[in-house]
Amino acid sequence: MSESDAETLFERVVAGEIPADVVYEDEATFAFRDIRPQARVHVLVVPRKRYRNVAELAAADPQLLADLVKTAAKVAELEGVAESGYRVVFNTDSDAGQTVFHVHAHVLGGEQLGFFGRLG
């Protein structure tokens, strides 16, 4: 997939052009299940308006970033992991594993999660 395709993928999901298992949506955000889950609960939370990554979003629209985090918490509640614990991850650019260049938060939970990053 080219970067230009990747940049529009989540916009197409939000627009309903690509099917998704929607967990939650509101005026500013859209949450749907990851097609390659890395945990029992793995939901992606995206702003409806596209920003390349979390740093760009934070600089341009801090309120929208706050809304994204609030939606992540709402997803954790809806998925039943708010009490047991969950992880919210933003990958920023290629070295961090970002493959779709529309900022998105991964909400992961529902099981004991391992450590992150390289060990040793």
Rank of each mutant, 00 (worst) to 15 (best):
P37E: 03
F32N: 01
Y51F: 15
R118K: 12
E11N: 02
A39D: 05
T8S: 15
N91L: 08
Y51I: 06
A15M: 02
E7V: 11
K74C: 06
S94D: 13
T71P: 05
S84H: 00
A59D: 12
Y51C: 00
V54T: 10
T92V: 07
A66H: 15
N91T: 05
F101T: 08
V100F: 00
A105V: 02
V89I: 14
A6W: 02
R118M: 15
Q38M: 09
F101L: 04
R33M: 01
V22D: 00
G85Y: 03
A39K: 10
V45A: 08
L64P: 03
V54P: 06
I35C: 05
N53W: 08
R12S: 00
Q38D: 04
L68S: 13
R87Q: 06
D34N: 08
A20S: 15
L64S: 06
G114H: 10
V54H: 09
G80I: 12
K49V: 13
K70F: 15
Q98P: 04
E83D: 11
E56V: 15
E83C: 06
G109V: 11
F10A: 01
E11L: 09
E17L: 09
V69N: 12
P19C: 08
A15R: 03
S2Y: 07
H104Q: 09
V88Y: 02
H104L: 07
V46P: 02
A39S: 14
